[in-house]
Amino acid sequence: MKREQASNWSLEFENAIATSGLADDISRCISCGKCTGVCPVAAISPSYNPRQIIREVLLGNYERIVKSEEIWRCFWCANCAATCPSEIKYPLLMLYIRYFSMSHGAGKKHVDPFIRFVTKARKEAVTFQPGKPARLDEIRALRSSLGLAPLRIVSDKGIKEYQKLFEITGTDEWLKNYQETPEVPIDLSYLEGRILVQDDSISGSEREA
């Protein structure tokens, strides 16, 4: 197997995180694995490993992070942050890693499904309002029966101000950029790993006995 070349590692990523102001100093990581031990995603797909992701960032193995499929799996449950002995806010780090990956044209397929929510929220200042008339009628009927407005109301003023925020915070431009950036095809090459027991029917206690 090809050895990883330390000369390929770059501090660009770690520095970018440090200046982002989003994630705390991740060099505090002591690689204890508590995060991975409580991670619901790692429990299902062990190739996603928060501790290892932090190590990749710290070592500067940035190729692998940017192209990684794994970084898109995090549920953002923050179990890791709640238990971390080094006070690393991993979910915020993950948020930043994903932005970083996107800035290299990767991961678009994991963001695309939400762009329609944003487009709609920009119009209504509310997220998730369904488009299908039948579903809307259902909601209207239920809300009315509870003595609530048929649909959640945001004033015209509120909507206008919300839309203005898209302009002044550069979100419109950001979205345009995002849509114009072509997706970089990811050439996935997993490292050979450990063979895992796949059969769920053998529970731990049965194996023990």
Binding site: L95, H110, V154, I159, E161, Y162, F166, W174
Partner: peptide, 28 residues
């Protein structure tokens, strides 16, 4: 208040908007 909008957190954490929008709408 009918002026209150979405908190914008969901869209932020789906990486579907930039952080500035979420910060600004929280502030607002």
């Amino acid at each position: 208040s009918v002026d209150q909008t979405c908190c914008t957190g969901y869209m932020l954490t789906c990486n579907a908007v930039n952080p500035q929008l979420a910060l600004a709408s929280t502030s607002r």
